[in-house]
Amino acid sequence: MSAPLISQLNGEAFSAVRVRQSMPDPDAIVEIPQVDAFSIIVQLQDFQAHRLWRGRRLSYAGGYRQGAVSLPFMGDQLRCQHRSGYDNLRLILPRQTLDELQSEQGGKRVDVFRYDAGGVEDATLYHLAQALLPALQRPELANRLFLDHMLMAIATHSIERYGRVAPPSGRLHASLTAAQLAVAKELIAHHLDGELSVERIAQECSLTRSHFSRAFKQATGMAPHTWLLHRRVERAQALLRAVPPMPMAQIAQACGFADQPHMTRVFTRLVGEPPSAWRNRHQASVFLPR
């Protein structure tokens, strides 16, 4: 294990820290201080394994590509675990800084940054981060004009691409990030028995129930329950193709339906024919001469 190498640059309106560590302790959990600020993290090399918690919830587990960017709000209760070597640049933008920039430009207050938890490759922020590296090595040579220019470039780009602005009512537009949508779909797919509440999914996405429900329907065209029924039917179709044939009651149970009649009703409504007819037709097509 090795100690992290830290280079830091403190400006009046933001700070930048480069942290490199070739062999971190993979079991150590780092508690991140809570402040009313946003962190823009740019990966300077591939980062193979990382974990991030918001409160007690594991928010992300995986790696990041070189050039990937994440923008967490530091007011959340964040903890992380570096499970492989890494090299990244972390820009800290206080909320007051963003509010002042938005006010100067006649824009609305930024509520959060919306991004993929696994990082999104952003060439603009990556090159801006590269431009900051010499200043981190020699902070005394970094002049105010340069730092102001970098602040404006970084903040403006981040707000335009990732900023989630609260409308005058204070309510956020109903939308899900790609990561939130993936989490929701995975949770539903792994709970075909339906023993999963909207509240639980919303909590995993850090949203209220009403916001999540609206956002999920906007993203998929279906309410969460309807999406669950479609996944059950897809699973049933896969099992109906099984050879030798599985009993209908067993398929219904495996797909989370209450019983065989329940499966028949839902299957017929969504597919247009009963599961028995669907199976006969598809099994017949398998044995047709070519």
Rank of each mutant, 00 (worst) to 15 (best):
A284F: 04
P134W: 08
Y64R: 04
H127Q: 14
H50G: 00
V42A: 09
G194F: 10
N10Y: 02
L270N: 04
Y86C: 06
L89R: 05
Y115E: 07
Q283F: 03
Q260N: 01
L270H: 06
L52H: 03
A174C: 08
A129Q: 03
R83E: 15
R231M: 13
R138N: 13
P247D: 11
G194V: 10
L192P: 11
L172F: 08
V266H: 06
I32N: 01
G63P: 08
L91W: 07
E31H: 11
A117M: 10
Q283L: 13
A249Q: 12
P168E: 11
P139L: 09
L239M: 14
L240S: 08
I251Y: 03
D87C: 04
V198E: 12
A129M: 02
M152H: 10
R281E: 12
R144M: 06
T268M: 01
A242Y: 07
A219K: 07
S59K: 08
T226H: 11
A189Q: 12
R161A: 11
M248K: 02
D148P: 00
A3I: 01
L229Y: 11
R138S: 10
M246I: 15
V19I: 15
H262K: 04
G67R: 05
L196W: 04
A61R: 12
E204W: 04
L141M: 11
Q81H: 03
R161Q: 15
R18P: 08
E104Q: 14
H230Q: 13
S276M: 09
A182L: 12
A68Y: 03
S197Q: 06
V110Y: 05
L141R: 12
E204G: 06
S175T: 13
I251Q: 02
L147A: 01
Q253R: 11
V286R: 15
R171D: 10
E204H: 15
L196E: 07
G62Y: 07
A153E: 13
A16G: 04
L145C: 03
P244G: 06
V183K: 14
T264L: 01
E104P: 00
G62W: 05
L52R: 09
C255H: 08
Y86N: 07
T268F: 02
A68H: 08
G119A: 07
S210A: 14
L141D: 08
H230I: 02
A123G: 01
G67L: 11
